[in-house]
Design a protein around this nucleic acid. Sequence first.
DNA 1: CAGGCGCGGATTGTATAAAGTTTCGCCTGT
DNA 2: ACAGGCGAAACTTTATACAATCCGCGCCTG
Lengths: 235, 235
Amino acid sequence: MAAKSRPKSDAPDASDRVSRIREGVTAAILEHRLLPGTKLGEDEIGEIYGASRTLVRTALQQLAHEGIVNIEKNRGAFVARPTPADAREVFEARRLIEPTIVDHAVDAVSPAWIGRLQRHLAEEREAEQRGDARASVRLSGDFHRLVAEMSGHSIYLGFLKELIARSSLIILLYRRHDTPACGTDHHAGIVAAIRKCDREAARAQMLSHLNEIEAELFLKDPAADELRLADVLGA
Amino acid sequence: MAAKSRPKSDAPDASDRVSRIREGVTAAILEHRLLPGTKLGEDEIGEIYGASRTLVRTALQQLAHEGIVNIEKNRGAFVARPTPADAREVFEARRLIEPTIVDHAVDAVSPAWIGRLQRHLAEEREAEQRGDARASVRLSGDFHRLVAEMSGHSIYLGFLKELIARSSLIILLYRRHDTPACGTDHHAGIVAAIRKCDREAARAQMLSHLNEIEAELFLKDPAADELRLADVLGA
DNA sequence: CAGGCGCGGATTGTATAAAGTTTCGCCTGT
DNA sequence: ACAGGCGAAACTTTATACAATCCGCGCCTG
């Protein structure tokens, strides 16, 4: 009875069908199975999940609000294709928010949470050794989400969910090499700092972790892209 | 032709009907004409705007995602009633984000922007002297949004829109006195600092501004409320 | 007379059908 | 042979009809 009697806005487990659709599509995007620009037809998705277009539509609208799907009027829904400018904004926002999140996570430190984090690290390591790139990508995003959940700050959590989803698309589009998704070592270091309640170390490690991810990106100028196209066509 | 050729996800001017509904309801909430807990019936709104329930539904879902409307399954949509915990989270997030936003605004300083800001300040002052509380509340929120637009950071802008809308509800619920919505003097000081390109002053003033707003709130413990009820019923 | 049960009204959730728009292919005219 | 326009198909958008759910009121029973 001491359980939080707060159903709040959206049930996270998602017993309803629209959430199942949303999470299915989200997972597909996060695991890089759906590529940017892919058309997400209503009929198509509806048939997959055995749902009517009405439900698919609501799910797609939610995803559009989260920034991982673009809905073009009278054209349909497409997996978003973040521009380099978007990418810079996303990572700047993450550099601002995530250090604060780990700070809160330190306040919430407990054996249970440390256990969850370490279990997650084990999962990540296993996926990487298995060479499962898709699981690896998803899990490295989940790590950041887990820390945000630990912080207990629901607004930061909501913001970060958005940022992580977009980051996944950005990494897919602009990663230079096929280096591992997110250095697991970094994650382990962050967990260690959290466990030791060392705020400054935790913040610093999170920050450098994000910097390293961004450093691996090659954010070509979007204008350059269009110009190049114009050149090619003009020549 | 040099205009931004970026229709992007949502057109801000909103020529379509669902945006008109969304913005109408949003304005009503921001101006404190719709009180927290108010039932937002689909038929009711649909008749007001001459739209079908389908469109009203999408608008309400968007507002739910922004956190100013709660949709309870099989019950309907209600104006959100943020808890004190929510309030603390919202203001903490604003204290984190807004100083960064003004920092970016300094980078974007130009006569045109300074003009817009000062015109806005004049509007605010006029509404306050006129004693128009509703316009005052709306305009003081718009000031923060304007600075975010100036920063050119679309992600921060999106986050801040959410935070401002929720702040409006929080202020309505938990304000102690009927002091003016947002000290216009603070806003003027922030604009002055931006104009002088004094980053540190701008950040500091924004921060103290937010602190003062939060200091005017009386965030009673929600648990205490429930417990008090239990006591009364138990006695 | 009090308490519980069941039914009716109202409202939301879902599906389906009609309407409008865009896109692509084809056909005709030069 | 190629450019331009017409037309059909597919899709999204919007509206409406149907089904499920919940709340409140009245009635019946103990």
